[in-house]
Design a protein around this nucleic acid. Sequence first.
DNA 1: GACAATTTAATTGTATACAATACTATTTGA
DNA 2: TCAAATAGTATTGTATACAATTAAATTGTC
Lengths: 159, 159
Amino acid sequence: MSEVTPVLLDEQLCFSIYSASKKFNHFYQSALAPFKLTYPQYIALLALWEDAPLTVHQLGQRLELDSGTLTPLLKRLEKQGWVTRVRSRTDERQVLIHLTAMATAKRDEVYQRIGQCQTLLGMSDDEIETLMTDLVTVKAQLDQVSHQRLIDKQVNLQK
Amino acid sequence: MSEVTPVLLDEQLCFSIYSASKKFNHFYQSALAPFKLTYPQYIALLALWEDAPLTVHQLGQRLELDSGTLTPLLKRLEKQGWVTRVRSRTDERQVLIHLTAMATAKRDEVYQRIGQCQTLLGMSDDEIETLMTDLVTVKAQLDQVSHQRLIDKQVNLQK
DNA sequence: GACAATTTAATTGTATACAATACTATTTGA
DNA sequence: TCAAATAGTATTGTATACAATTAAATTGTC
């Protein structure tokens, strides 16, 4: 009697999320093609349209990305004219990310394009809300487990 | 009266999924650290433990990954002794991915490790099932939209 | 005020992802 | 039969991700 079913529900859920995330990515990539923006670049702009300037660190907190990801991403956005990267005068360690006039000007156009493409997901707002609530639960649990892992790691190091 | 709320529910959902996917990734990365496996490498092995050998193409269908991703991933798995890559004799175009004796031998150990770490997500099986069903809906819709995009693209090319 | 500790970005190295292209082997069709 | 189309894999180029390290600036403490 071998216990041969490791394909637990959790595992399938992980794959579902992994796969959905990639699909969403492609969706935005294609929707934003006229602006040559990727999804991560887009959400960076979204955060800045809401509140700018932001330091790299602040942006990272909102997007849950670190400087290793953001620095090159922001350099690309700068090269394409969406943002400027200015080292703060009051604290030379931080780099402030400002929106360019072009970024401000194009905001509504980008919004509109996304709106156009957002041909509903075939789910009610309630369903989406529920889905998101469940995802929050999953994420919280994963955070907790990975915190547990830290302790576990130390235990494992003993032997 | 400007329509300044582009942060639609869909957008928040996308970010939730994106963020959950990354967290799951870290979870597996850390759970599988003793085996030096990443999540994509792990699901490749999962597919092979279920059914091997598989061609790169077949594996790609199961994982929804193309050869650009799989070829280097499989080379890494080969270098670490999990699989062998053998060009098929009956059809020289395809490369068959076989499990090594080590991979077969370590299967249960890996399963066990994952089982150990899978300290429940704080959700019932029913809740998880519902979540996955909803994700399937979202994915189906995204597939449909991206298919629509193809037509759209052609229309846009006109002007 | 000196200096250790902390904070913040950038860099480096590794590993996905995927579009586009190239290349080879197989299959198909005239 | 053999040219054209197709299939399968690999390669190249671009863009994330993130751990680990480095470097620079600031803060806290004596």
